Structure formats: structure tokens, C-alpha cells
Simulated assay, not measured.
Amino acid sequence: MPPRAGAFSANFTPEILDRFRELCKQQSKSYSKVLERLAELYLETDGAVLDSPSVPTTPKQSKSASESIDPVLLQELQKKLEQLESDYINADDHLEALIEDITERLEVLEK
């Protein structure tokens, strides 16, 4: 008997397939329809949907911030934050100096 038109066959890792089917079941979705939608997204983006730097995780799978962020990236972000804080302080100091200068000039003009 030949397979029906549109039939799909794939060799998933049993654990992945079981987890996928279970999640679809929990969400009351047909896993074949979910696979079809994933295929549509893949086609619509010319495969770029898989180029995303990260794949969203469900709350059950998410890690704590300390586990999920690369230490090097965290250090770089910390340095950037410190630089922004320094720039903010410098800008605030400069603004205060400008206000003082303008106030003094205004007082001279008013005399």
C-alpha cells in the first residue's frame, strides 16, 4: 500500500519525539499540525528561523541567570554598564557646570 499524499516520515530521537508529542498534547495541539507550521516558518524565512542566536525556552527549561549567561558576556556587560555609569556622571557634572556658567552670565547681564 503506497503512502498517502502528504505523508511524512522522520527519524526523531525517541526522547525528543516523546517530549514533543507530550507538549503538543498538553497544549491541545496536533503534533503534525505543529510540524507543518514549523515547516511553513522555515520556508517563509528561507531557513533563517534556525539562525536565531537563541531558542526561547519554556519556563520549565529555563536556567537561572547565573547559569544561562556566558561569564565572558557577563563581564563585558558589566564593563559596559560601568562605562555608562561613568559617562552619566561626567555628563551630569558637565551639565551642572554649564548651568552655573549660564547663571553667572545671566546675573552679569541683569546688572
Results as ranks from 00 to 15, higher is better:
M1Y: 03
P3Y: 00
R4I: 05
R4C: 06
G6A: 07
A7N: 13
A7W: 04
F8I: 14
F8R: 15
F8V: 12
F8D: 14
F12Q: 06
F12K: 15
T13I: 08
P14R: 05
E15L: 13
E15D: 12
E15G: 07
E15P: 00
I16T: 11
D18K: 15
R19A: 08
R21N: 07
R21C: 11
E22D: 10
L23F: 05
C24A: 12
K25L: 03
S28D: 02
K29V: 13
K29L: 13
S30L: 12
S30M: 10
S30P: 02
S30C: 10
S32G: 03
K33L: 11
K33E: 06
V34R: 00
V34W: 01
L35D: 01
E36L: 14
R37G: 02
L38N: 13
A39M: 14
A39L: 15
L41Q: 13
Y42A: 11
Y42P: 07
L43Y: 01
L43H: 08
E44T: 12
T45G: 09
G47P: 13
A48F: 04
P53C: 11
V55K: 05
T58L: 03
P59M: 09
P59I: 02
K60D: 10
Q61G: 09
Q61P: 05
S62L: 07
S62P: 00
S64I: 01
A65L: 04
S66M: 06
E67A: 07
E67P: 00
S68E: 05
L77Y: 10
L77R: 15
K79C: 03
K80A: 04
K80T: 02
E82F: 05
Q83E: 12
L84N: 13
E85F: 09
E85I: 00
S86H: 11
D87C: 13
D87Q: 14
D87W: 12
I89T: 08
I89V: 07
A91Y: 00
D93R: 15
H94M: 08
L95A: 07
E96L: 05
E96K: 06
E100S: 08
V108A: 07
V108N: 14
L109K: 12
E110Y: 07
E110P: 00
